[in-house]
Simulated scan of single mutants.
Amino acid sequence: MTNLTRRQSLALLGAAAAAPMIPAPAFAGTRLKVGALRFTSHAASFVAFERGYFADEGLDVEFEFFQAAQPMAVAIASGDVDYAVTAISGGLISLAEKGAAKVIGGALSEEEGIDGQKILASVAAFDAGLTSPAMLDGKSYGITQPGSSFHYMGSKIAAKEGVKVSFKPLNKVGAIIGALKSGQIDAWSIVPHIAKGLAGAGKVKIIGNVSDYIPNYQVTTVFTSANNAANERAKTEAFLRAFSMGADDFNAALVDKTAGDEAATEMVNLIHKYVYADKPIEKAEKSIRNGAMRINAGAALNKASVMDQLDWFKSEGMIKDSVTYETLVDDSYVKTIM
């Protein structure tokens, strides 16, 4: 059976129609900068670029890569980046409150039945008894910045277990990995392509699943400037259409595995251009496949999860009580999930 990408299928359909009737994209030549992390969880953007879905919408995309969520939010607010995908952070909420940024959709999600983010312990801490999240009391937990998704996850895990942890801000994911491997911090939580790779190499120990503590967690969102959300609707819709097509291809190839083995291998090779690109594909492939969590179809947004995150930020005194869901989100673009 031949498995076609959505773009290939559309091309075949288009061949049956008269070529002169096909209009040029509405935004032909529109240049965009898209913010991303070099994570498998950002694959929808990579697929949309590599398979020409952005180009089909007339969007000339260039990627700007970051090492944490909050700097990406600042780049959106300053206009250095047009659209981005990352976790909700205190910095993003603050910029939304100031009228500078807006969440417009959902991306990576924890989903029952799909292997998701892992809770990790350093080898030294594990050997000293940190063999489950219940043993986190008094331990150090790595985060990029206060108010990051790592901070949120660690707090929710600690609260459910009734323990207290000491959060250690280390600014960058790479710095957290180094600190965990060397035993300078005791614990962390991260997406599976990183977690399983580190554990498989014997550098850390997996002691739990984030989904056991935060079910249906909307891990990352699609966001843009408040100006784009309010005044550039057609362009924003074009971006979301292309992004969603990339997500569909990714899910079919590596999450639902309905596209066949050849499509899965092709997807791994595509993602490898952006994730673990410094490693041979033979070494990178397993980690890329391990990172295959659900990216929401149609960029649907889990409203209940976003509201839970806002409630946590308020409980920690990181944002004002007056901040609402509508302050952060313009969900007129996508379907919402409760």
Rank of each mutant, 00 (worst) to 15 (best):
L92T: 05
M72K: 05
H42F: 04
T144D: 06
A16P: 02
P280I: 10
A229I: 07
I143E: 02
L92Q: 07
V204L: 01
A69C: 05
I177N: 09
E112I: 11
M245E: 15
D82Y: 08
Q67R: 07
A297S: 15
L310M: 06
K303P: 10
L59I: 08
F54C: 09
I185L: 07
A134R: 15
G58I: 05
L254V: 07
V173I: 08
S122C: 08
R233H: 13
E111F: 01
E266N: 14
L240M: 01
D82P: 07
S9T: 15
M318L: 11
K257R: 15
K273N: 13
V74S: 03
T86L: 01
S305A: 14
Y217T: 00
E316F: 07
P192R: 03
D308N: 14
V323P: 03
F167C: 03
S109A: 13
K279T: 08
A16D: 11
F63T: 07
G58V: 03
S132W: 14
F63A: 08
A124D: 14
K257S: 04
A187N: 12
K257V: 12
V74L: 03
Q70F: 06
P25L: 06
Y152F: 11
G52Q: 09
R294G: 00
L310V: 04
I143K: 02
E57D: 12
A199H: 02
M307Q: 14
M21F: 02
V165K: 10
F250D: 06
A259L: 13
L59V: 05
A44C: 09
R51N: 13
S287E: 03
L270D: 06
K164V: 09
P20D: 05
S78C: 04
H42K: 00
F49C: 09
M153Y: 04
I337E: 13
G202E: 11
A84I: 01
P192I: 02
A201C: 02
H272K: 10
D80P: 00
S225H: 01
A292R: 06
A259I: 13
N3A: 15
R7A: 15
A187P: 11
D249I: 04
A253P: 10
D311T: 13
I76M: 09
E161G: 12
Y325H: 07
E285R: 14
H193C: 01
A179M: 11
A229W: 05
D330R: 03
D330T: 06
G200Q: 04
F65I: 12
N251V: 15
A242T: 06
N302A: 08
E112F: 13
G197H: 02
I194N: 05
K283G: 01
F223Q: 03
V323I: 11
L270Y: 05
A55H: 03
A297H: 14
L170Y: 10
S148M: 04
R6W: 14
Y274G: 08
V268M: 07
A199C: 05
E57A: 10
K181Q: 14
V81D: 04
P133T: 04
N227A: 07
F313N: 02
V334K: 11
A26W: 04
T220R: 01
L37D: 04
S244D: 06
S244K: 01
A73N: 00
E237N: 10
K33M: 01
S166W: 10
V85N: 03
V255T: 09
G147E: 06
V81G: 02
A238V: 05
I176W: 00
